[in-house]
Write a protein that binds this DNA or RNA. Sequence first.
DNA 1: ATTTATTTATACTGACTGTATAGCTAAAAA
DNA 2: TTTTTAGCTATACAGTCAGTATAAATAAAT
Lengths: 209, 209
Amino acid sequence: MCPRPYRLGRRLAAGEKTRAQIVAAARKVLMAPEGPAAFSIDAVAHEAGVSRMTVYYRFESRRGLLEALFDDLAARGRMDRLAGAFRHADPVEALSEFIGVFTGFWASGRLLIRRLHGMGTMDPELGRALRAREERRRHGLDVLVRRIAERRSLPPSMTPEDVVDLLFALTSFETFDALVSGKRRPRDVAALIRRLATFVALGETSRIS
Amino acid sequence: MCPRPYRLGRRLAAGEKTRAQIVAAARKVLMAPEGPAAFSIDAVAHEAGVSRMTVYYRFESRRGLLEALFDDLAARGRMDRLAGAFRHADPVEALSEFIGVFTGFWASGRLLIRRLHGMGTMDPELGRALRAREERRRHGLDVLVRRIAERRSLPPSMTPEDVVDLLFALTSFETFDALVSGKRRPRDVAALIRRLATFVALGETSRIS
DNA sequence: ATTTATTTATACTGACTGTATAGCTAAAAA
DNA sequence: TTTTTAGCTATACAGTCAGTATAAATAAAT
């Protein structure tokens, strides 16, 4: 009855462990060649060696599980490197590194992200959740474009909004995904995107190592 | 028992009519604010004023219905104008018109296409079917890039494959969709895409009306 | 009149999401 | 130890959906 302080020690550790197991299982199931249609709470629970109810207990719903999966993906995607990009003195260098970080992220879980995005268009609520997480990218570009505009000048007859939106589209997962092919590795895709991005931001091609 | 010749007259007309009704209903249901999750054979049949079994009789399956919906969309999307683009003497002009045709198509059914693409990532079979229909776009770009390479020269250190793939990404629905906003109408999006496309194809910005 | 295409009614299987409820186990606190 | 609590499970249920099977009704074409 009376709530008493309850410090979680090994309980928490155990809880996080099963949580991680379930997320890992979700990733595996969603990546399976059977396709995203095979993604069900049942399948994930079975893959995780856990009961179906445990999944609901941990993630509330299918949507909650997918959001958690996306967050886990972002955490693994070395997005922490993003801070480093913004420390560059030259904002064009910063943009280049920005592109490197995101192409790296997209490359780290291509199939998974593609399918998660698909689920996001199916479930509007999930879509909003995913898009909210992507707003950070737009904001980052906004900052970079502002910095570039301060030192150099943006291409004439293009508003800063145009530049930001174009860069947002260029650095999107969909663009990356469309450009990866058998011959062209993520590294090469990043180079292509950098070339277009510098054109968009400066109106010219400047050499970047 | 013995098959006798059977010319469909009014039968065919009636059949096509219910077929069209169902497709129209499918479009309506898929566009509904309740989201694509509300898309079910039941809902479509009810909207079309037809029994559920009729939908199966006409389209085999949910996937068949969605493919038919996509084809109907393409038929309505004035894709016939594409032929005109290729009749231009100047391939850069042709590319410009090519972009106009596709942005027009994307704009004609934005929400619908977005959701259809989402369904395509969920159902691999449907995804293949939709992608096959998009291969015409890639092929068209391939032809245009070849023509451009004949007269002018493509940007150095970019292979023709790079150029085609970049144009393919730039003229994709996803890019278009990302660039449309409250302020920027489809017409303006087309202008932005043209600017980038000419840069990709020529390595410079040349003025296009 | 008869064949045939089209449409419907009904009933079923199987898979899925989500909820409710009670019970079990082991860690944490008294 | 005893009690409280978090985590996990078993079971059962409601509701939705896709797809199949089957028989039947309707009306056009012959």
